[in-house]
Simulated scan of single mutants.
Amino acid sequence: MRLLFICSQNKWRSLTAERLFDEHPHYEARSAGTEPGARVRVAAGHLGWAEIIFVMERRHADRLREKFADELRDKMVVTLRIPDKYPFGDARLIALLREKLAAHLPLL
């Protein structure tokens, strides 16, 4: 299953989430950001590739819907409600991601 994680800058939250799935046997993950200065900025191709899209905050989902309404038509978008206060790879962020994702990804 192909997972896409979205945050603002694609430097801390979404990149940490992507790394959780490195070499996972059942999930493939990518990440991107919504802002112009993002490490990887989200594009239509990312959304087309993904089977499930996880955003960290509601505002990320709103931005995706504004810019990519057609690409999101048949996609599941899940808001994780994870604030932008954890650095990349932070143990608390990893624990929070695992907790929030468990309901959506049974093979985690």
Rank of each mutant, 00 (worst) to 15 (best):
M1C: 03
R2Q: 01
R2E: 12
L4N: 07
L4I: 03
F5I: 03
C7T: 00
C7K: 05
S8K: 10
S8W: 00
S8D: 13
Q9V: 14
Q9H: 04
K11W: 10
S14W: 01
S14T: 00
S14P: 10
S14Y: 01
L15Y: 15
A17K: 15
E18L: 11
R19Y: 13
L20F: 08
F21R: 05
H24L: 12
A29K: 10
A29G: 04
R30M: 06
R30N: 14
R30G: 11
R30F: 08
S31M: 05
A32P: 15
A32G: 13
G33P: 08
T34L: 10
E35V: 12
P36E: 07
G37S: 13
A38G: 01
R39H: 10
R39G: 02
V40D: 09
R41M: 10
R41C: 04
R41D: 04
V42I: 11
A44F: 14
L47M: 09
G48I: 05
W49G: 09
W49T: 03
A50L: 13
E51Q: 01
I52F: 00
I53A: 14
I53P: 05
I53W: 12
I53G: 14
I53M: 14
I53S: 15
I53C: 07
F54M: 08
V55G: 00
V55L: 09
M56Q: 08
E57C: 00
E57Q: 02
R58T: 15
R58N: 10
R59Y: 13
R59D: 15
D62I: 13
R63N: 01
R63H: 09
L64G: 06
L64P: 00
L64R: 07
L64T: 02
R65Y: 10
R65H: 11
R65A: 14
E66Y: 04
E66Q: 01
E66R: 13
F68P: 00
F68K: 02
D70L: 15
D70K: 11
D70P: 02
D70F: 15
E71D: 10
L72M: 08
R73Y: 04
R73M: 11
D74Q: 07
D74G: 05
M76H: 08
M76N: 06
M76T: 03
V77S: 13
V78K: 08
T79S: 09
R81F: 02
R81L: 11
I82D: 03
I82L: 08
I82A: 04
P83G: 06
D84S: 08
K85G: 06
F88P: 10
F88Y: 12
F88C: 04
G89P: 00
G89C: 11
G89N: 01
D90F: 12
D90R: 02
A91D: 02
A91Y: 11
R92P: 06
I94C: 06
I94K: 14
L96A: 05
L96P: 04
L96M: 13
L97G: 15
R98D: 13
R98Q: 15
K100R: 13
A103L: 06
A103D: 05
P106W: 07
L107K: 11
L108C: 12
